[in-house]
Design a protein around this nucleic acid. Structure first.
Length: 859
RNA sequence: GCGAGCGUGGCGAAAUUGGUAGACGCAACAGACUUAAAAUCUGUCGACUUCGGUCUUGCGGGUUCGAUUCCCGCCGCUCGCACCA
């Protein structure tokens, strides 16, 4: 028997698919239902790694499976091609970012094609292509016209390593999401997109995604948007008010029920009043400066002590008329709410810590239902449910009731009103970088901000730029920014900021529906294909890309460019590919020398795993299992696996070992197991003998097993349980082996089912098997097999007999047997009888779960 | 601190309306084939056992005829947010 040679068969089948142009899909109506499956497109960093491979293979399984079910499947691929690494390469190696990017795309496209993915390459796009970003500039100006884009001076997050501004979503633990540098605050005039206009809709829309998006991602978005309902109101000052605050100071609270526990007013150090006082008094200025010192990292915030400054100002309590002091406090954020609060120490831990430190009053106004009015608070604020007391008109009310009453009273007085505020900030999209989409506006001294006329789009990046000094190459380019104003023709200045690359990826899925359209989006094509039915990618984009894309989809629909609300009807977040690490030296000493897996051999000594370097035999340390990364050298390249085991084995392994949402641990043994599967499956196809006679007994059993397998694999694929589906396929191979004597139609059907069921996972093997069976055409065009429910279940079932919940015997019964018959059989069972007698038990009750189990309750 | 998820053999894991715990794979061990090794094939593979059984899904309780699954309380790990009023 010939060994299966992936090196020969895989290129052969890929050539057949290419010859047939099998994966190009038309926008014409075919009468078939549509299905759009998309994986998050890659940044062209240089190589396709195992993480990419797992992601795209998952998408390919879905795409091939849906195709077999008769759908028109759109499965495109492109490149998220703008971004900092290209500029870093330019700085380090003197190559042009564009040249570097396009060379990487070339390499990676070749690597992707090796994977045998059912991709429609005719729709390929790269976001750095002027054809793409020019259309992006087009819709950007549409949003500008509608007021969804604006420019303002504000405090922004400045990444001192990448020399650019970052959006809030891109700052993690106070550090740049890409560079890891500590982010600084700077005042700059920047472009913003009004994502906050959509805050409510973005939260409310999450409900419709229930069941199709992971709960975790929906929750993260909800928390990120951070909607809270409360009261915004002014507190008047007693005596002289700060200039401009004669009406009082505006505060925000979610706990208006605790008004009577108010102890002081707190202002953020950046609040306008704080600044005014700081300008007048150097001691205040010094205090404010002190507040700014604390960093933004976790540890620093946890340790940061609450500090305050008594301004000497007094504010008037809106209900009691009493005067309360006004403090500047470091724990109050200027960016949230109004940057000012009223503090109720008894029911807020931060306020309490502060009040205890500065000896401010602590008055409890909410008590647990079971406590009485003597309830007080010591060092722990009471934030639980309860009843109001010490609160005049609110006494006896529950918290929610009291909130409503307090808001109503303030609204009646006209000093404030109920308000909903959000944690979400508008999206700052200006980047002071070269390799991005130019913001298509011109600054004219006379006319102000002037959009570039549409007939002058795209605004293309200049090619001749230098990276020898820090800063924005566009800004220092000799000629590019000097243009004449489109309105008055006077000399003017082109905007030199480029757009955040997350803008590029916020609409690419729509562009894929007609990537050559003369407008950003072809409405008919978008209507045909959108939303994306199944989107697959990493969970790290839960509040970045996935939130931005939902926003842009809504915005583009609102300006009439398409008509879609949610871009991704279904989302799946897949786990990473991880690998053991190996090193010489001590990790603790800071200088581990990482060793590549290809240079490592694992031995078993006294039952323990010991690693040795192949090259010199030295014993080395086995480190943690971590995400594959170049820095730790625990990388296995897809191309190497393909060369040694073939694509199909690699595809099978990344899906077989762990549930798709969990990390999968790459192992040499694991992929060898997958490779064995491919060989064994081929052996079954290859052993097929069309002339072998039918064999009634064996065939009947094989038919049953075949239908069971169809059922299990179909359900596994449907519910993203690829590992379970593959386990069933392994088991089916065992069945085929056990039924070696089967013949005739039953055998042929079983094998043709095997070919179709493995096709999403190991498509090349499937085609080879299909051809070997003498079947026409390609598996690719074959229908997904259907199972017969009656045949997918055994006609005889083994039912365990439990006594008191412990298994004591079993009876074999026909499927669907009457409970009475089952009970009789169980009681008549010799083993069961013997046990009952030996333990002197009498059966009191019998529970029969049809086709499952019998439980005898006895004593 | 707040929120969410997870915890099952030596390892990755199955067991989705409460019904035979450990499917399938890896590793390991034994055997066959081989001059030998690899590959391949066959078998064993949760723990203890007086071979009758007993115990076993992080720990402790509870509900139930029956719990990996539901409830309560701990312990541990992972992820997200983090002074958000």
């Amino acid at each position: 028997m010939a060994r299966y040679e992936p090196k020969i068969t895989e290129p052969r089948q890929q050539a057949r698919w290419a010859e047939a142009d099998a994966f190009s899909v038309s926008n014409e109506d075919t009468g078939r239902p549509k299905y759009y499956v998309l994986e998050m497109f890659p940044y062209p960093s240089g190589n396709i790694h195992m993480g990419h491979a797992r992601n795209y293979v998952m998408g390919d399984v879905i795409a091939r499976w849906k195709r077999a079910q008769g759908f028109d499947v759109l499965h495109p691929m492109g490149w998220d091609a703008f971004g900092m690494p290209a500029e870093n390469a330019a700085m380090e190696r003197g190559v042009h970012p564009g040249d570097w990017t396009y060379a990487n795309i070339e390499t990676m496209r070749g690597q992707l094609k090796l994977l045998g993915l059912s991709l429609d390459w005719s729709r390929e796009i790269a976001t750095c292509d002027p054809e793409y970003y020019g259309q992006q500039q087009g819709w950007f100006l549409e949003l500008y016209k509608r007021g969804l884009v604006y420019r303002k001076e504000g405090t922004v997050n400045w990444d001192p390593v990448d020399n650019t501004v970052l959006a809030n979503e891109q700052v993690i633990d106070g550090r740049g999401w890409r560079s890891g540098a500590l982010v600084e605050k700077r005042k700059l005039t920047q472009w913003f997109l009004r994502i906050t206009d959509y805050a409510d809709d973005l939260i409310d829309g999450l409900k419709d995604l229930e069941g199709r998006w992971p709960d975790k991602v929906r929750l993260m978005q909800e928390n990120w948007i951070g909607r809270s309902k409360g009261l915004q109101m002014k507190w008047a000052f007693a005596g002289t008010a700060p200039a401009g605050f004669e009406d009082g100071v505006e505060i925000y609270t979610t706990r208006p029920d605790t008004f009577y526990g108010a102890s002081f007013l707190g202002l953020a150090p950046d609040h306008a009043i704080s600044k005014q006082l700081a300008d007048a008094d150097p001691r205040v200025a010094e205090f404010v400066a002190e507040c700014r010192k604390g960093g933004a990292s976790q540890a620093e915030i946890e340790q940061a002590e609450k500090i305050g400054w008594d301004t000497g100002l007094k504010a008037i309590h809106p209900f009691t008329g009493e005067e309360v002091p006004v403090w500047i406090a470091n724990f109050i954020l200027s960016e949230y709410g109004t940057g000012a609060i009223f503090a109720c120490p008894a029911h807020d831990q931060r306020d309490l810590d502060f009040a205890r430190k500065y000896n401010l009053p602590v008055k409890a106004v909410v008590r647990p239902a079971e406590a009485d009015d003597s309830f007080t608070v010591d060092t722990e604020a009471y934030t639980g449910p309860g009843v109001l007391f010490n609160s005049d008109f609110m006494n006896g009310m529950e918290i929610e009731e009291a909130k409503a009453a307090a808001i109503a009273k303030i609204e009646a007085a006209g000093t404030g009103k109920g308000a909903t505020i959000y944690r979400l900030r508008d999206w700052g999209v200006s980047r002071q970088r070269y390799w991005g989409c130019p913001i298509p506006v011109i600054h004219c001294e006379d006319c102000g901000v002037v959009p570039v006329p549409s007939d002058q789009l795209p605004v293309e990046l200049p090619h001749d730029v230098t990276f020898d000094v820090p800063g924005n190459p566009l800004d220092r380019h000799a000629t590019w920014k000097h243009v004449n104003c489109p309105t008055c023709a006077k000399p003017a200045r082109r905007e030199t900021d480029t757009l955040d690359t997350f803008v590029d990826s916020s609409w690419y899925f729509a562009r894929f529906t007609d990537p050559k359209a003369a407008t950003p989006i072809n409405p008919a094509a978008a209507a045909k294909w959108l939303p994306v039915d199944q989107y697959i990618g990493g969970v790290e984009h839960a509040v970045l890309h996935l939130l931005y894309a939902r926003f842009i989809t809504r915005a583009l629909s609102d300006v009439g460019l398409m008509d879609v609300k949610e871009p991704f009807a279904g989302l799946f977040t897949q786990g990473m590919v991880v690998h053991e690490t190996y090193y010489e030296g001590h990790e603790d000493s800071g200088k581990p020398r990482w060793v590549e897996p290809s240079d490592v051999q694992i031995e078993h000594v006294d039952g323990k795993r010991v690693a040795r370097r192949l090259s010199n035999g030295a014993e080395i340390t086995i480190g943690d299992i971590e995400k594959m990364s170049k820095s730790k050298k625990n990388v296995v390249a897809p191309a190497d696996i393909i060369a040694t085991h073939g694509v199909d084995a690699g595809r099978l392994f990344v899906l077989s070992d762990s549930p798709p949402e969990r990390d999968v641990q790459w192992s040499a043994g694991g992929v060898e197991g997958a490779s064995r599967f491919v060989q064994r499956a081929w052996a079954e196809f290859d052993a097929f003998d069309a002339s072998a006679p039918a064999n009634a007994d064996v065939d009947a059993s094989l038919i049953r097993e075949t239908h069971k397998t169809i059922k299990a694999v179909s359900e596994g694929v449907e519910h993203f349980r690829f590992n379970s589906a593959i386990a069933k396929l392994y088991a089916f191979l065992g069945v085929l082996k056990d039924h070696a004597k089967a013949g005739g139609e039953a055998k042929k059907t079983a094998l043709s089912v095997l070919a179709r069921l493995v096709a999403p996972f190991t498509p090349h093997l499937a085609e080879e098997g299909w051809t070997r069976l003498g079947l026409d055409g390609m598996v690719l065009d074959a229908e997904w097999p259907q199972f017969d429910a009656a045949l997918a279940a055994d006609d005889q079932v083994i039912m365990p007999v439990q006594i008191g919940g412990k298994r004591r015997g079993e009876v074999q019964m026909p499927r669907g047997a009457d409970n009475a018959d089952v009970e009789a059989a169980a009681l008549a069972n010799a083993t069961v009888k013997a046990y009952l007698e030996a333990n002197n038990l009498t059966v009191r009750k019998v529970i029969v779960v049809p086709d499952r189990i019998v439980n005898l309750v006895a004593n």
